[in-house]
Design a protein around this nucleic acid. Structure first.
Length: 277
DNA sequence: ATGATTTCCTGTAGGC
DNA sequence: TGCCTACAGGAAATCA
């Protein structure tokens, strides 16, 4: 699933091709979950220049020359790819943008339709989506600050990381991977962490996110880079999707449990359960 | 308000 | 081989 490293990989891949270019045509499918919903997204994009492409958490953002911003969330199965104009679109294309002087089209595919698109001022986007309640950007703050934000919350670690309101960008993969690396159980309550544990978790989260970006992200399901290539970091996962296989640290069988409604992968020896629940 | 649960979706995996 | 069902999960909506 696309999480911070996957979105960052797509942003970096697209930047040199589309930044500074004028959008000549835009069209969207009626199935796309878009805001505003009255079909104004495509019209609002046409004849606007895309000044800057950036990322916040898992949201991909494109600043237009009229002060508005295009927001794209890839959801579960979203792909944002540049494809040659002569290549016909595949199934499940929900948004297509053409740029002046570019022989390729930026296409948003999303079979499961969990993705979202919005066009508005940054304040409107913050109001319409989770963008406004995102926590710290993990690679733009030091581990100490992130640790403080984590320790100020009373949720279970897994739920807190998935919510993204203390620290943004982790989804199921990187939540499990960072918790394993830090040796912390996903059911631990964030506010119960020692300072040392919280700093460790913050540091491991930053580490795994940076490594995943270097690896071009993790391709588990549908995620691909802007050019259709798969990511490579799935090969480096230590626990995610590895239930039944040996823990790379101690050899015990990795277990899969459910936390916060999500499949959660842990080593019960390396990640000690809290006293209660 | 806060936290927990449900909902939206369809491709894929597994069972028979 | 092919049909069928269960399952996966990010974030918004809904519930308690």
């Amino acid at each position: 699933m696309p999480e911070l490293p996957e979105v960052e990989t797509v942003v970096r891949g697209l930047q040199p091709h589309v930044e500074g270019r004028l959008v000549t045509h835009a069209r969207r499918s009626k199935l796309l979950r878009a805001l505003p919903s009255r079909g104004k997204v495509a019209r609002g994009l046409a004849q606007r220049r895309l000044d800057r492409l950036w990322r916040r958490g898992k949201y991909l953002l494109g600043d237009l020359d009229d002060g508005r911003t295009l927001l794209v969330h890839l959801g579960m199965s979203g792909q944002l790819v540049l494809e040659p104009l002569e290549t016909g679109p595949r199934r499940h294309m929900h948004l297509a943008l053409r740029f002046e002087g570019l022989e390729a089209e930026l296409r948003f595919y999303d079979p499961r339709r969990f993705g979202r698109v919005a066009l508005g001022g940054i304040d409107e986007l913050a109001e319409w989506t989770g963008l406004g309640s995102l926590g710290l950007e993990p690679l733009e703050h030091d581990a100490g600050e992130i640790a403080t934000a984590i320790r100020s919350r009373s949720k279970r670690l897994k739920a807190l990381l998935l919510e993204g309101t203390a620290v943004a960008g982790a989804g199921n993969i990187y939540a499990d991977e960072s918790l394993f690396r830090a040796g912390l159980h996903p059911l631990r309550v964030a506010s119960s962490l020692t300072r040392r544990e919280a700093v460790c978790l913050a540091g491991e989260l930053q580490g795994v996110l940076r490594e995943a970006i270097s690896g071009g992200g993790s391709t588990i399901g549908d995620y691909v880079r802007h050019d259709g290539r798969r990511g490579g970091f799935q090969e480096e996962h230590l626990v995610y999707g590895r239930a039944g296989r040996p823990c790379p640290r101690c050899g015990r069988k990795i277990r899969r449990l459910e936390v916060a409604g999500r499949g959660t992968h842990i080593c019960t020896r390396c990640q000690r359960a809290p006293r209660k629940s």
